[in-house]
Each structure stands twice: as C-alpha cells, then as structure tokens.
Design a protein around this nucleic acid. Sequence first.
DNA 1: AACGCGAAACGTAACGTTCAGTTTTGACAG
DNA 2: CTGTCAAAACTGAACGTTACGTTTCGCGTT
Lengths: 200, 200
Amino acid sequence: MTATRTDRGPRSRDAILQAASDLCREQGYAAVTMEAIATRARVGKPTLYRWWPSKGAVFLDVVLDKLVEPAIELPDTGDMVRDLRTWIRGFADLFTDPHARQLLVGLLGAAQTDTELATVLREKVQRPLQAGNRQRIIAAQDAGELPAMDPTLLEELLISPPWYRLLVSGEPVTREYADQLVDAVLSVRPQRPTAAPPQK
Amino acid sequence: MTATRTDRGPRSRDAILQAASDLCREQGYAAVTMEAIATRARVGKPTLYRWWPSKGAVFLDVVLDKLVEPAIELPDTGDMVRDLRTWIRGFADLFTDPHARQLLVGLLGAAQTDTELATVLREKVQRPLQAGNRQRIIAAQDAGELPAMDPTLLEELLISPPWYRLLVSGEPVTREYADQLVDAVLSVRPQRPTAAPPQK
DNA sequence: AACGCGAAACGTAACGTTCAGTTTTGACAG
DNA sequence: CTGTCAAAACTGAACGTTACGTTTCGCGTT
C-alpha cells in the first residue's frame, strides 16, 4: 500500500474538463453525457467516475476553473462603490455570454435536484465569496460609503436580481441593468436598527 | 352544441396531478418518474404522455393548481405597503413549506434544462403576475406611497432575494427576512432619472 | 510481475412508443 | 325515455432505446 491513494487529481483532469466544456458549448448542457465526456477526453468511464460522482460534479469543476476565479470575485480598487459596480457588471457580462450562461444554468439546475452537488456548490463558491465580501461591505459602511443596513441583505439586494433574471424570469442582464441596480440599492436610506414599522 | 366532451383535458386530470403531488411529497421531486405517476393514478403511460410531454409539464400543472392561485398573487387591501409586505411574507411561507419547496425547486430546476418548459412557465406564471403587479406599483408610486424608480426594478428588488435564497444560496426565507427586505427596499431615495455617476 | 488505465461489455432503470383488448361516450333508432 | 352500437379513449403490457454506473479484460508502463 503506497500511502494515501485517492487524494490526487486524475492525470488528465484538464482534458476532461475541457471536453465537458466543449461538449456543452456544442450541444448544450442537457445533451452532454458522462459517456460522451469520457470518449471525448479519451479516458475510460471508470476513471471519470473515480473522481467525479456525476455530470454536475464535473461541471462544477469546469465552472470553478473557468469562471469563478477570474470573473466572480469582488475587485478591490479602494473605491467600494466603483468596485461594486464593476462586480455586478461582471455578472451581467457572465450571464450574457452564451457559454457561461449554459454552464451556470445547467449547473444550478442540476443542483436543484442533487443535494450533494448543491452542498459542494455552496461551500466552494457561495461561502468563500460571501465571507470575503461581507468584510468589505462592513468596512465601507463604517466609512460611510455604503448605506447602513444588514450587510448580508445589502449583498443580496445587489446579487439577487441578476440571478433571478438568469434562473427565473429569463430577462436579459445587461450592463445598463447592472448600473441601474447598483444605483438603486446604494440609494437606500440608513435603516432604523431593526424596528420594523408595526404591520397593524 | 354540447361541446364534444370537455375540450382538452384527460379524464382523470385530478387523479394524475394528485398522484404526482403525493409522490413528490413521499420521495422527493427527483425520484418521481412518469411511470410511477401513471401507476399511482391508475392511468396508462400513453394517456399521460398524451396530455403532458414531460414530468416537468405535469408538475407545472400541479404548481399552477395548488400554489399559484392562492399563494402567489399580490393582495389588494388599499394599503400598498402593507400589501407588498403580505405578498413577500407569502413567498417566505411558501419557500419554507417543505412540500411547496420541493415542487418549486424541482420545477425550476427542470426548467433550466428544458426550454419548452421554461417558456410555458414564464407565460403562465411570470407574465400574468408581473403585468398585474406593474400597474399597481405605478399607481402607488404616483400616489407617493412607493419610491420613484423603474417599477420593474422595484418589483425585482422585492422578489429576487427570496428566489435567490431558494435556488442559489439555500438560506432560509423567514417572515422576519421578508419584513427586513421590504423595509430596506422601500427606503430607497427617489432616483435621478437615469444619470448613472460616470464610472471613471 | 504488478499496476493503472482505456476500452468494451454488462445489468439496470427510465424513457417514450406501439399494440392489443377493453371501457366509456354520445348518437340514434325504437 | 331507453336500448343498441360504432367511434373514441383508455389501460396494461411489451418493446426498442438511451444513459447510467459497474465489472471485466487486456495492454502498456514501470
């Protein structure tokens, strides 16, 4: 037994992810099968299943490699308002690009009926981004650059509408929309601590 | 003309939708198959496929029958702010109920990889609701009850975060969250017509 | 000689369709 | 109003297909 055996990636990880990405571009997410990925990447199906339990898991890694790092992180130029605008514009660009759109919509769709995948997706994408952004938002609020409100809610007000358009309404997410959205959210008046006006 | 039968509609529509709903509650959306629905409803598979092209189409009708009418429409008591609060709370309740959650998440997930289904979903749910709400929002803005901004954006700011939590982040959608959300969005200052501050 | 991997083959599950044989329906004659 | 009948629609079983996920085999590397 030569020590730990399972903790290295497959030899041809890149070939596999590239194959999956290409197939998705050519035929759309739904039409891609594990068999096709294996064939295209010239690997055996057992090898594929050895490291990824499902099609969704493969595409999660595709998205992590190709989209998340470069395109989804909040930039940091010192000007928070400007950074937020750039960030949301980045989502608009991402959601407009047909290939990225295919990848994200397919992956999120799969995650809706695959608990395992949904968990990993949140831990690997959601969690890290949110944690980092949260600190930035709080700091900017303290500096008076952003409206004083629950930082989680502020982030959600910015990021939810693009996702809603992508996954629910299907409306396009343009840069103009991104700008309009940021303007609106940053125009919120400071909130009273938590006192919701009595409903009745 | 006695109209040949009740035009359209299988004889046992209700039995089929009930079977689908029950199976979803018992086993989860993903585990439900067309075969199982047919068996449970004591209907032949051909009959099922005669009226619904896919599992997603069946569940769309389940959702239309059981959720949309009673639970997703914006109420109208004359007090728009209060109506909006009630409306978003309704979504919170819906997204918290395990069965409704299963149905909605499964259906939306399927729609991500089924263009046909996505189109019908938008036409039958999205479109009608949005159109009605839009008029109400504009009227309330004219009356000074709501912040002056693009009515579509205002609606999206309210409705997106719950959907985002349901489909993307997985965070719970409580009534408290709904109230907090409405408070924040209604605190937006009137927007300058469209003048986005120059980015550079 | 042993190992790891690609390729092929296998059993399973669900799909969506086809094919009898039966039940339901509405129309019409008595 | 009622009995009869043909057409339509339905059930249930079976079929071919596809993709899944696993197992087996053989080859090349070490």
